[in-house]
Every structure is written in C-alpha cells, then in structure tokens.
Design a protein around this nucleic acid. Structure first.
Lengths: 191, 191
DNA sequence: TTGATTACCTAGCGCTTGCTTGGTTAAAAT
DNA sequence: ATTTTAACCAAGCAAGCGCTAGGTAATCAA
C-alpha cells in the first residue's frame, strides 16, 4: 500500500521532483529521472506515490502552501498599506527567485498538467493566496496608492511579478531589492 | 523528400496544430491527433514536416511573424507617443485573445519546448518584436508618460499583458477595449 | 520471538509514441 | 504519351514510458 502521506522521505523526493519539473517540465521528466536523483530505483517511487501525477500534486501543494505561509507572515509584520504592498512585492519576488523557488514556479507553470480532481482540491489554497493579495491591493486603493477596479489591479500587479520567471536572472551586483523598488514605483507614482 | 517549406496545405496543418498545442500543450498533443484534425493519416504528416518539432517550429514562426507584422502596422498608423502606447496595448491584447491567438500564445508558452538550434533561429524575430516594443516604451518615457529604467519598464508592461493569457476570458458585455483602457491608466496616471 | 510495517530492489509487461518504408493516385510538366 | 512531382495511405517497428508483481532486509511493537 501507499498510505504514508507525510513522511520525511516523501518530502525529500518531492523537493527533488520539483527541481526536475522546473528544469525539464512535468511531461519531460520521467519517473526514472526522479528516482535517479533521489537515489532509488524507479519502481520504488510508487511506494511513496500512487502515480506520477501524485508527485506533481505534492510539488504544487508544497509550492502553494509555502508561498501562502510567507505571504501571511508578511502581512502580519507590516502596519501601513504602503509597507504592506512594498513588502508583499519583495516577498513575491523572493518566493519566485529565492532558494525555495522550484516548487512555487512549478505550481504556476504546471497547473494545467493536473487533472480536474487535483485542481479542485488545490484551488482552495490558491484562492486563499489570491484573497490575501486582494486584501493588500484593496488597502492600497483605499489609501490612494492605486486606482481602478480592484480585481484588475491585482491581476495586473501579480501578472507582472509572476512573469519575471520568464526573464529574471539573479546577478551579483543587481539585487532583487532594486527590482522590487522599481516595480513599486512603476505601479504607484501618484504622490 | 520533405522540402516544400511554403505550401498552402502546410499552412493549414500548422494552424490546426496551433489550436491543439494551445489546448493540450505540445507534449500532450500526439501526431495522431494533429493528423486526425487535418483529415489525413499520421504518417502523412512527415511528408510536410521532417519531425514533430518542426511542426512546433512552424507554429511559433507563424505566431511571432503575425504579431510582429501587426505591431509594425500599429506603430506606423499612430503619431504621438501616447497614441502609440495606447494602440500597442490594445493590439497586444487583441493578438493574445483575438481569432488568431493560438499560434502566438503557443509561441509564448512552448518556447522552452524548442531545441536550442530552433530557438537560435527564431530569436531573431523575437528580438525584433521586443525592439519595437522598446521603441514605444522609450518614447513614452521621453514624453513623461512612464518613468524609470527603460528595459524594466518594458518587461513589466509586457509581462502584465502577456500574463492575461492565464486569466482573461472574453465575455459578452465586457470588451477588451475596457481592459486595455484600464491597463493604460494602470501604468501611466502621472498627469 | 513473532508478526507487522516501512522502504526499498529486480525484472519486466503492456501500451503509446514518433517515425519509417514501400506503395498508390491524380495532377502537372515535358 | 510519358515522366515527374505532390500528396497521401497502409502497416508496422523500435524505443521509451508509466507502472506492477513479487520478493528482501531492517526496524519496531506485541
């Protein structure tokens, strides 16, 4: 049987899989590749997961949960709407480009590789994540930092940030903080 | 032999493939699916293309070239930097969500499915496309419509627009023009 | 001491995949 | 009238894929 949903070993393998899914995509990553990097034989994977798709599910859950936790903390740690927005932008960029990036990037890119049932389960976390962002955006609009339709503002802001996965390359010299600052000025610049 | 690079039939099949690649992704679209929708047997596909990857190449080339032509026309038709920017935003959204969207969306999403050699060839069109956008952004900065580092401004703007492929659903009632207007206000709003 | 549980391995099955080979037919060119 | 070319089909091969079955060794509770 498979059953053990929260073992340490499973988490390790999930992290290995996240790295591969991000590098090669889900479809082009074979179970043999995952097994090799995890140091086991391919058949042994199915002791931990019932099928390959469950590995993707585990990766995406890890990515979404991690990002949600970070976002929650960020909101708690700040006081004004401006601080909130600034901090959330920086956190989002760090989530996408910091050391735990793999799982979260996979959760964005491979969402459509999940089957409908898995998506229905994970959408709960995703919705909560978006709701927290919406809260930040709404507050920013109330303070006059942003103007316009709340939902569209959130989609524009998050879209720009998420799109950085397609072009941002960390370099020594250019810090992610600089990009975050420039982006904050990009979306506000009213005062 | 394969040789006929610009036949009418090839264009038809490429369009069929674009639709499937957008709906199911490149990897999950089989040559048998493409053949069926094109009304031929799967083996016959290889009379028109040397392998499956060449079909993707054809789709992406179609998508990029189409978008580039449209962008060039848009720049010619307008006069001021403001008109230029407004028009380019609307055209970009129409390219992504209008009737010829498939090939262009595939050119964005499946870029990483190409092998290195194909990418090297197509990067020329892509660079020209980005250069035209940079021209529009630079002009907008000169006029004071935007502020900041030119390259980052372009990436932020295009990122937001391209990200709409993940959420925009055309509805009767809400027009794409409204979204374009709201986006223009989102990125400018200095005056 | 025994029995269950966890974590693996060995070996390979069955299926789908991209692609090939050798032919056919109809139209166009000579 | 004959040859060439373009566009297809029929049949199937080889490779790679996800996944399974049956077994072993170590750990741990009863």
């Amino acid at each position: 049987m498979t059953i053990p949903k929260q073992s340490l070993r499973r988490k390790e393998i999930t992290t290995v899989a996240a790295k591969l899914f991000k590098k090669h995509s889900f479809d082009r990553t074979t179970v043999r590749m995952i097994a090799k990097d995890a140091g086991i034989k391919s058949g042994s994977l199915f002791h931990h997961y019932k099928d390959k798709e469950e590995i993707l599910y585990a990766v995406i859950e890890q990515g979404l949960s991690g990002a949600l936790d970070t976002l929650k903390k960020t909101i708690k740690e700040t006081n004004s709407a401006e601080e909130n927005l600034k901090a959330a932008i920086l956190r989002q960029l760090k989530t996408l480009h910091g050391k735990d990036k793999d799982a979260h990037i996979v959760s964005i890119i491979e969402w459509s590789s999940l089957d409908e049932a898995s998506r229905q389960q994970l959408i709960v976390i995703r919705d909560e994540y978006e709701a927290h962002w919406q809260y930040i955006i709404d507050a920013a609009i109330s303070e006059g930092l942003l103007q316009g339709q709340p939902r569209l503002q959130r989609l524009f802001v998050l879209g720009s940030l998420n799109w950085t996965i397609h072009w941002y390359k960390p370099k020594h010299g250019v810090q992610i903080e600089d990009t975050a600052d420039e982006f904050y000025r990009f979306i506000t610049k009213s005062g």
